[in-house]
Structure formats: C-alpha cells, structure tokens
C-alpha cells in the first residue's frame, strides 16, 4: 500500500512557482517545533509520523503549518505534556477572547 504522503513518481500537474512570505503565526509554529525538538519533548520521526497519519486529503484541506499544528498537538498529548481536556478548554478560551 502506498501511503498518501509517499508520493514520489505519481502523476501531477505543473509546478507553479508559488510562494508567500510566512505569516507570524506560521513562524511561531516553526519556532515552537524547533524548540520542542531541541528539548527532546518528542522526536522528529514522531512528528513526521503524526503528519502522515493525517491521511490522504490532508494535503488538500490543510496548509503546511496547519498540518504541523495538528502533529505538535498530537505528539504533546501522546507524550503526556498536555491533555486533550486542557487543549480543548484552552482553545475555547482563546477563541472567545480572540487572543493570537
């Protein structure tokens, strides 16, 4: 079985030279993931594994750093650094107050 992330050699459309300047929230997510790695909270392979588990439509539905956010949360929960309950409550609070 070929898994969705393992896409080398499949047919594809033209490569369009798209790029954007990274937004602040994306840079923060990038920096968080580097610090988490440096502090051995979880390892890079766990991180990649979590992204791979997002499955086939993740590349269409989520942006690059949205996939990273998912993987960071997944691995922090798995490692017991945060709980599902904590994350849910905090997200509600963040949304209510509009904090970024």
């Amino acid at each position: 079985m070929r898994r969705a992330h393992d896409m080398g050699g499949l047919p594809g459309g033209p490569v369009t030279p798209e790029e954007h300047d990274y937004a602040l929230w994306e840079k923060r997510v990038d920096a968080m993931s580097v610090l988490i790695g440096n502090k051995n909270i979880f390892n890079l392979d766990e991180f990649r594994h979590a992204i791979e588990l997002l499955g086939a439509d993740a590349h269409e539905k989520l942006s690059y750093y949205e996939r990273w956010v998912y993987a960071i949360a997944h691995n922090l929960i798995q490692r017991g650094v945060i709980t599902v309950d904590e994350l849910g409550r905090r997200m509600t609070e963040v949304e209510k107050t509009g904090r970024t």
């Binding site: 393992d6 979880f42 766990e46 594994h49």
Partner: peptide, 26 residues
C-alpha cells in the same frame, strides 16, 4: 514507495542513526 524493489549502487556510507521506524513510535 517508488524505490522499493529497485537495485542501485552504494555511493557512500553516511554513518549510524536512530531507526526512524522505531523512533516514530517513541
């Protein structure tokens, strides 16, 4: 996936590293 079953030639030995298959599951 695309390289499984294919034959090639070793260009260099890169050293030893943790096994990603095991590290990915802690």
């Amino acid at each position: 996936f695309y390289i499984r079953g294919k034959a090639g030639t070793v260009e260099r030995y890169c050293g030893e590293f943790g096994n990603p298959e095991e590290r990915s599951v802690m």
